[in-house]
Design a protein around this nucleic acid. Structure first.
Length: 842
RNA sequence: GGGCGAUUAGCUCAGUUGGUUAGAGCAUCUGCCUUACAAGCAGGAGGUCACAAGUUCGAGUCCUGUAUCGCCCACCA
């Protein structure tokens, strides 16, 4: 016998270990069943899982468990990401707290510290996965820095290099002066900052004329090698071709014309700093300008800035402005607000710098994706579909991907140098004297290979051929540019096929006020506190059903509470069923009563609807559909009806059949409690519910006329209760049925056995009716003013509705153009309303 | 500057191809300890679907425009 109250701690205890021991989570490579593979977005080993991860994995687990019951050979591959820059930052800090400097510690020892960190956090993360009950195949777990991944990474690098898709070049890149590494465009986040246009006089050589140059970055003037104006700009005609004097350095630089100078912006004259600005870099290339690097790697000013050497960028700006002002070269300061790029990881202002780095040539790779996305059978199907635009737009505008990072934790670049020679290969060259590139690859370079490198690529094996392309990938929309896009172009280039058929996108979780969760706000919620308080099932159901796919969610603990109540409801319904079917030997759906047929029909319809939603990943709608059936039909009505015929085999069978069905539909959402209850069923098809089959829609269990009839009885019951409550009618009432039909069920449900009369009484009468059933309640009661008002209001509503409907039905346009079904419905409704009104007016 | 999303009950959210009186949970009001469940049961109340114009017999849903909020992208000096 079940406890009276659902206790999630008891229910969830030891279950995960049981599932693991029975190998339920393992894929069956040799199985003939159709494969269904998802690779888990590998969480960073930087930290522990948060609510967003819990959401992400819950969605995947629901898909996997659903597909498994549907008969697929499911395979959910877990793993973690070494997260190069993010983890390195954490380990650097940990060492620093111990008084150890990364560089003096040395590369090998530092990497050891990184591995220690990785193992610590890996263990924590695995425990967290277990708490959520997710069906990961741990026998295939991978790490983005393991041997197989490393091999795949080197292979891609070498092949791309040989094909010309990877090259090394000196270009302007985003430099993080704290981590002292290059970054990709995606790793730069822009935020609005208060700044100013500084208008500076650049004096014409040997003249007292000058050009007013407006800049937001006066500290970079030491790197100026020209001033550009537009060739159509009349204001500066006389300056073009001459020199202006670079302030502070008193160095002559040319005034050139270039399309980059926009006459409508600023003063129309722009200083050109090729080594510290991407646009100026391009201008410099066009005009063969010298590139003067004026900063050190930590973004302090270097020796070329004279007395400003050693200052930070900020200090230098202040000093420069002060000095220019002293020289009378500062015209004005115009405050503005503009977007400034910051490092995603360290938060520091990114400095554009000229550096020799490795790049992936993006155009051919991106074009391939754009072409594939035009083919229905070969494209990645985004859910919701609008996110395809996010990827496609990125593919259209992307430019070469800077993949080298000046870090230690990551895949070391397989390039070796000897004097001016470069060797790129899977292994180091044999001869002596070659030195390997010090840098590692962007962490996303390896995770881009995740959907196939984890399956054994570049070796061709059964795992790869069976499970690639993956059937689905689940991730948040914020990860599309970093990861989804890159997996897509890599998969299509390297294996000739999309990495996954579907890509289910979810949003971000925010707090109750709609703010992002962040450490500084202190508004974080630990999902495992929720598991502790309400159970994994409640958290999972909440996360999966709260919002429609692709939208953000506002976290609300009250809803988890409500889910707990729902589970408790299921628990208690099961308690009733189980305690009454202990002697059931087999489920036989024959000699069915109308209410049995009714609930079976409702269940089939719910199943049909639920499956449709599950297949579209609309778990919110699927959840609502099951909830509505379970609570409003099964619990509120069928169980109540069943109480009167509980001894009959058909009742027991129906109870057991429907409860089993409900448990199966809920299993993907609530694996623990459904497992617990399923195992207590006297009749069941499998040892555990997660290996049972999903119910199949069965037309033979659709009974239209019984459904209609019992629906009508239910409608009558509701009307009856309504009238009884609204009129404060007590048990003293007498009831006379006007209709001959069998009203047994109604009489039982309303407990009217002692109140029935055959002839009308000469006291106040209340009419109750549904389509089929009519009855009169006799009850002595003084009509109050409130009763009168209520009745008048009801008459008013009905009268208005009738006249609106009559008008509609007399409109030929409507009658002729609207579907006959709709018009017929209106006619029915009108007739009912008229009848009701007549009753009220009696 | 470009793109996307949101705007529906007090709160958080659903709402399929346009079609009965726009739904749910929570909160709220009334009455109930009816032996599965008071974390429950029964019955209510609560919405000009952001705004304006349009298409249509019919618009929360489709078209156009506006407002507010949010996100993404973009090299703007």
């Amino acid at each position: 016998m079940l406890d009276k109250k659902y206790n999630h701690e008891i229910v969830e205890k030891d279950k995960y270990e049981k599932w693991l021991a029975k190998d339920y989570f393992k894929c069956v490579e040799d199985s003939d069943n159709k494969p269904y593979c998802i690779v888990l977005p590998p969480p960073n080993v930087t930290g522990v899982l948060h609510l967003g991860h819990a959401w992400d994995v819950t969605l995947q687990d629901i898909i996997i468990r659903y597909k498994k019951m549907e008969g697929y050979d499911t395979f959910w591959l877990p793993g973690m990401d070494h997260a190069a820059i993010a983890t390195e930052a954490k380990v650097v800090k940990r060492l620093k707290d111990k008084g150890i400097d990364k560089y003096s510690y040395g590369r090998d020892k530092f990497l050891e510290a990184c591995w220690d960190w990785t193992h610590e956090h890996g263990d924590i993360i695995r425990k967290q996965w277990a708490k959520l009950g997710i069906a990961l195949d741990y026998s295939k777990e991978r790490f983005t820095l393991d041997e197989g991944m490393s091999k795949a990474v080197r292979k891609v690098f070498v092949d791309y290099y040989n094909e010309g898709l990877i090259y090394r070049g000196e270009k302007i890149i985003n430099w993080d002066p704290v981590a002292k590494t290059a970054l990709s465009n995606e790793e730069v986040v822009y935020s609005e900052e208060k700044s100013a246009f500084y208008h500076i006089k650049y004096m014409l050589e040997n003249s007292d004329k000058y050009i007013d140059v407006a800049t937001t970055r006066p500290e970079t003037l030491f790197g100026d090698t020209a001033v550009a104006v537009n060739e159509l700009d009349d204001r500066y005609k006389e300056f073009v071709g001459k020199n202006v004097i670079l302030p502070l350095l008193n160095k002559p630089i040319p005034v050139i014309t270039d399309e980059h100078a926009d006459m409508t912006k600023g003063t129309g004259a722009v200083k050109i700093t090729p080594a510290h600005d991407p646009n100026d870099f391009e201008v410099g290339n066009r005009h063969n300008l010298e590139r003067v690097v004026i900063m050190n790697d930590d973004a302090t000013m270097n020796e070329l800035t004279g007395k400003y050497q050693g200052m930070t960028r900020e200090e230098c700006r202040e000093a420069v402005i002060k000095d220019l002002e002293g020289l009378g070269l500062l015209i004005k300061i115009e405050p503005i607000v503009h977007e400034v790029g910051h490092s995603e990881r360290t938060g520091v202002m990114v400095e554009p710098m000229i550096k020799k780095q490795w790049f992936v040539k993006m155009r051919p790779l991106a074009d391939k994706v754009l072409a594939t996305q035009k083919i229905k059978e070969e494209k990645v199907n985004f859910v919701p579909a609008r996110y395809e635009k996010t990827m496609n737009h990125w593919m259209e505008i992307t430019y070469d991907w800077c993949i080298s990072r000046q870090l230690w934790w990551g895949h070391r670049i397989p390039a070796w140098y000897k004097d001016d020679e470069v060797y790129v290969g899977m292994e180091a060259p044999n001869e002596a004297g070659w030195v390997q590139d010090n840098d590692v690859l962007d962490t996303w370079f390896s995770s881009a290979l995740w959907p196939f490198a984890t399956l054994g690529w570049p070796d061709n094996n059964k795992l790869l051929s069976k499970y690639y392309p993956n059937q689905c990938l689940v991730t948040g929309y914020d990860i599309i540019p970093f990861w989804v896009n890159r997996m897509t172009f890599q998969g299509e280039k390297l294996l000739g096929k999309r990495p996954f058929e579907d890509c289910l996108i979810h949003g971000l979780i925010r707090d109750k006020q709609g703010r992002k969760f962040s450490k500084s706000l202190g508004n974080g919620i630990d999902p495992f506190d929720m598991v502790k308080d309400y159970g994994a099932d409640a958290l999972r159901y909440y996360l999966a059903t709260d919002v429609a796919p692709g939208t953000d969610m506002r976290f609300d603990e009250e809803k988890i509470k409500a889910t707990w109540n729902y589970i408790n409801k299921i628990w208690n319904a099961s308690r009733f069923v189980l305690s009454n079917i202990e002697d059931l030997k087999e489920i036989k759906l024959d000699n069915l009563k109308p209410e049995d047929k009714w609930i079976l029909t409702k269940f089939e319809k719910t199943l049909h609807e639920t499956k449709r939603f599950m297949d579209k990943y609309e778990f919110n709608n699927a959840g609502a559909s099951i909830y509505n059936f379970t609570w409003n039909y099964f619990c509120d009505y069928y169980i109540e009806m069943a109480k009167y015929t509980i001894g009959e085999h058909s009742t027991k069978s129906t109870l057991c059949y429907v409860l089993t069905g409900i448990l199966k539909l809920l299993q993907p959402f609530m694996p623990y409690v459904t497992d617990e209850i399923y195992n207590m069923l006297p009749v069941k098809e499998t040892e555990d519910i997660m290996i049972a089959s999903y119910p199949k829609y069965d037309k033979k269990l659709i009974f239209d006329s019984e459904e209609k009839a019992v629906d009508d009885s239910v409608e009558f019951i509701k009307s009856f209760r309504n009238i009884k409550a609204e009129n404060n009618i007590t048990k003293e009432m007498k009831v006379m049925f006007d209709t001959e039909d069998d009203n047994d069920l109604i009489i039982k449900m309303l407990k009217l056995n002692d109140n029935l009369v055959k002839e009308p009484l000469g006291i106040k009468a209340y009419k109750v009716f549904s389509n089929r059933v009519k009855a009169t309640i006799f009850f002595e009661k003084v009509e109050t003013e409130a009763d009168k008002l209520a009745k008048e209001a009801q008459i008013k509503v009905l009268t208005e509705s009738i006249s609106r409907r009559e008008k509609l039905l007399s409109n030929d346009n409507y009658v002729n153009k609207a579907p006959a079904k709709i018009v017929e419905l209106d006619r029915q409704k009108l007739a009912e309303e008229k009848q009701k009104l007549a009753e009220l007016l009696k």
